[in-house]
C-alpha cells in the first residue's frame, strides 16, 4: 500500500499521520492539554500553543484543559484523543472505531461533533466502523470489506450535502443508503 506515492512508514516518520483508536490511549498522568501537546514532543517540535488552544476549544474541552483523563467521561476522553490526532495537522487522519466503546446516545452526539470538527479541519480521514449509520453520516465514500480474507466488496459514494445536521439522520435518502449498505454487508 502506498499513500501519495510513499509507504505508510514514510508518513509516520514525517509525523503526518494522526490516529485515534477505540481505546483512547490517553496518558493518565498528563492533563488534557498535555495529552494534546504530546505529538509535538514526539515529533521534537515546539508546542504550538495557539493550535492546542484551538483544538481544546474545537472539541469543547477548554474548561477541562487542566483535568486528567480519569476526571473525564468516556465521550470526553475520545474527544481529547481526536484533538490529539489533529494536533500536527496530519495529512491523513485514521480513526479506528473511535466511538465503538461508547453508548448509543453519546456515540450519536460525537458523530455530529466529529462531522463538525472534520468540516473545520478538512483532513483526509479514514474511519473504520461497524456502524452503518455512522458511515453514511460521516463519509463521502464507504468501502465495504469482507471478513476473511479482508477484500473490498463494494465502494459506495455518499452524496448527501454538507455540512450534515442531525436532521439528516431521519431523511429518506439517508435510510435508502443505509439499507443499500446493509445489503452489501450481508452479501460480503
Amino acid at each position: 500500500m502506498r499513500i501519495a506515492g510513499a509507504p505508510p512508514a514514510a508518513l509516520i516518520a514525517s509525523h503526518q499521520l494522526g490516529i485515534a483508536f477505540q481505546d483512547h490511549a490517553l496518558l493518565p498522568w498528563l492533563t488534557v492539554r498535555e495529552n494534546i501537546e504530546l505529538p509535538f514532543h514526539l515529533a521534537q517540535r515546539t508546542v504550538d500553543v495557539a493550535r492546542v488552544d484551538e483544538l481544546t476549544a474545537l472539541v469543547g474541552l477548554a474548561e477541562f484543559a487542566g483535568a486528567r483523563p480519569r476526571q473525564l467521561s468516556g465521550g470526553m476522553r475520545q474527544r481529547v484523543a481526536i484533538a490529539r490526532a489533529l494536533a500536527l495537522r496530519p495529512r491523513i487522519l485514521l480513526l479506528d472505531e473511535p466511538f465503538g466503546a461508547l453508548d448509543a446516545v453519546t456515540r450519536r452526539q460525537l458523530n455530529i461533533e466529529l462531522q463538525r470538527i472534520w468540516w473545520d479541519q478538512r483532513i483526509t480521514t479514514v474511519l473504520v466502523t461497524h456502524a452503518i449509520d455512522e458511515a453514511v453520516f460521516l463519509a463521502d465514500r464507504v468501502i465495504v470489506m469482507s471478513a476473511r480474507p479482508g477484500r473490498i466488496r463494494h465502494d459506495v459514494a455518499i452524496e448527501l450535502a454538507r455540512p450534515r445536521e442531525r436532521e439528516i439522520l431521519s431523511a429518506p435518502g439517508f435510510h435508502a443508503l443505509s439499507d443499500e449498505l446493509a445489503r452489501a454487508l450481508d452479501a460480503a
Binding site: A13, P39, L42, L94
Partner: peptide, 11 residues
C-alpha cells in the same frame, strides 16, 4: 494502545 499510539506518532 499506548504503544501503538507512540509508534504511529513516529516516536
Amino acid at each position: 494502545g499506548q504503544r501503538d499510539l507512540f509508534a504511529v506518532l513516529g516516536a
